[in-house]
C-alpha cells in the first residue's frame, strides 16, 4: 500500500476530480461498455453476417425507429407504446397501492403501541416470503389479468416500505410528540401534522428504492402470463432470437426507470424544502 502512496503526493482519499474530470469519469463506463459491445458485435458479424446474437448498434437504432413509429400490420397499433402504457399502468397502480398501504400501516405502527404489537412481527415475517413463489397462487386466485400482476408488486414491496416507514416514525424525537401533546394535539393530529409530513420525504425515497423490485416483479409476472406489456414482449421475441428488439426494450425500460427516479427526486426536492434548510 505504501508503495502506491509513495508515487502520489497525497493520500488517495484526498484526491477530488475537477468538474470536467468528474463528468468525463461519469461518462467513461458508458463509453467503454458501448465500445466493447461494438467490437464484440463487429467480430461476430465479420465471421457470420447472419449472426443474431450481437446485432450492430446501427441495427438496434433501425429496429428502435421501427418499433417506436411503425404500427403493427394486423392491429394497426404501435406495439411498443401499447406495451409501455400497459406496463406503466400496472407499475404505477401497484406502487401507488403499496405506498398508500405502507404509509397508513407505517404511521400506525410507529405511533400506536397497540398497532405495533399487532402488526410488526407479522410484517417482519411477511417480508421474508419470496413474492415470486406466490405468483402461481396469485394467478390461481386472481386469474391471469391485471389484478394478479398488481397484487404481486404490492406483496413484493409493501412489507419493506412499511417496515422502513414505521422505523422512521419511531425515529421522530419523542420530544416532538410530547410537545405536540402539550399543544393539545390529538393522536390524529400528531399522525397527520407531525408524523406524516416528516415521513413523506422518506416515502418518496422508499418508492425510488422499491421501483427496482417493482419492475422485477412486473416483468416476471408479464413474462409468465400476459398478452401485452414490456416484459411479455421481451419474452415473446426471445423465441425468434430477436436480440435487436430485446435490447431496444431493455434500453427503453432502463430509460423509463431512470426518468421516473429522476422525477421523484426532483419532486422530493421541491415538495420538502425544510429537508435541505439545514444543509
Amino acid at each position: 500500500m505504501s508503495l502506491i502512496e509513495d508515487i502520489f503526493a497525497m493520500r488517495l482519499i484526498n484526491y477530488v476530480p475537477s468538474r470536467p474530470g468528474a463528468i468525463f469519469l461519469a461518462a467513461l463506463p458508458f463509453i467503454l461498455l458501448f465500445v466493447a459491445y461494438s467490437i464484440a458485435s463487429d467480430i461476430r458479424l465479420t465471421a457470420n453476417p447472419q449472426d443474431k446474437l450481437l446485432p450492430a448498434p446501427s441495427t438496434i437504432v433501425e429496429t428502435a425507429e421501427r418499433l417506436f413509429t411503425v404500427p403493427d400490420k394486423r392491429s394497426k397499433e404501435i406495439l411498443l407504446w401499447n406495451d409501455t402504457f400497459a406496463s406503466l399502468g400496472r407499475l404505477f397502480g401497484g406502487v401507488a397501492i403499496s405506498a398508500t398501504l405502507s404509509l397508513i400501516l407505517g404511521i400506525a405502527i410507529g405511533l400506536l403501541p397497540y398497532a405495533r404489537s399487532l402488526f410488526s412481527s407479522f410484517i417482519a415475517v411477511m417480508s421474508m416470503v419470496p413474492p415470486l413463489a406466490l405468483l402461481p397462487i396469485l394467478f390461481i386466485v386472481f386469474g391471469l389479468g391485471e389484478v394478479s400482476k398488481i397484487v404481486l408488486i404490492v406483496i413484493g414491496i409493501t412489507p419493506f416500505m412499511t417496515r422502513d416507514l414505521a422505523q422512521r416514525v419511531m425515529e421522530i424525537p419523542n420530544e416532538q410528540i410530547v410537545k405536540a401533546q402539550t399543544l393539545g394535539a390529538s393522536s390524529w393530529v400528531v399522525a397527520q401534522r407531525v408524523a406524516l409530513p416528516q415521513v413523506l420525504p422518506r416515502l418518496i425515497s422508499n418508492v425510488r428504492l422499491s421501483l427496482g423490485s417493482a419492475w422485477l416483479f412486473l416483468i416476471a409476472a408479464e413474462a409468465v402470463a400476459s398478452n401485452v406489456g414490456l416484459g411479455y414482449r421481451i419474452f415473446l421475441v426471445r423465441r425468434y432470437l430477436a436480440m435487436d428488439v430485446i435490447l431496444t426494450y431493455v434500453i427503453w425500460i432502463t430509460l423509463l426507470a431512470f426518468i421516473i427516479d429522476w422525477a421523484l427526486k426532483a419532486l422530493s426536492r421541491r415538495a420538502f424544502p425544510w429537508m435541505e434548510a439545514g444543509l
Partner: peptide
Amino acid sequence: AFQNPLGT
C-alpha cells in the same frame, strides 16, 4: 391550531 380536530 393543533388543539383542533384536524390540527388546522
